[in-house]
């Protein structure tokens, strides 16, 4: 059996969650305040996930860049693959919040979307 203390990143509270587990099987979990924390810890011991946020250059817009994010969490180990693909992305103004700027980033199946509108 393994034991770990995992700090939940689900919200600013940052609960310290103590977990005992065997392989992918949680045996005991204490310290989480809500269900998000439980889900987070389950993922952490099996398949850690993260949201990635960044920016991409915009052509012909009122700003030089548009902020972007992964539409949902991606595998943590893919963070730098996603960032690498993003270095090749350029968009043309206008961009609307929620527009897809890159489909299926680095084979994760997750799209990258704009988080701001740029006229």
């Amino acid at each position: 059996m393994d034991e770990r203390v995992i700090v939940c990143i689900g919200c600013p509270k940052g609960c310290e969650i103590h977990v005992k587990y065997e392989g992918h099987e949680v045996i005991e979990m204490t310290g989480n305040t809500c269900k998000r924390g439980e889900d987070y810890v389950r993922n952490e011991i099996t398949y850690p996930l993260r949201m990635v946020t960044s920016i991409v250059p915009v052509e012909g817009g009122e700003f030089a860049t548009v902020p972007v994010k992964t539409k949902s969490d991606i595998p943590k180990e893919k963070i730098f693959d996603v960032m690498r693909e993003l270095t090749h992305v350029r968009v043309k103004a206008p961009v609307n919040m929620g527009d897809v700027v890159l489909k299926d980033a680095a084979g994760t199946g997750i799209d990258i979307i704009a988080t701001r509108s740029v006229k």
Binding site: S54, P67, K69, M97, R116
Partner: peptide, 30 residues
């Protein structure tokens, strides 16, 4: 532009209370 400092806070962590979802700074501002 309007929105203040949030426009440069492109990471997530905003709006859990107000919108019940985790937004980036620019999304919260917009």
């Amino acid at each position: 532009y309007l929105g203040g400092i949030l426009n440069q806070c492109v990471h997530t962590g905003f709006g859990l209370h107000t919108f019940k979802e985790e937004l980036t700074g620019p999304e919260y501002a917009e």
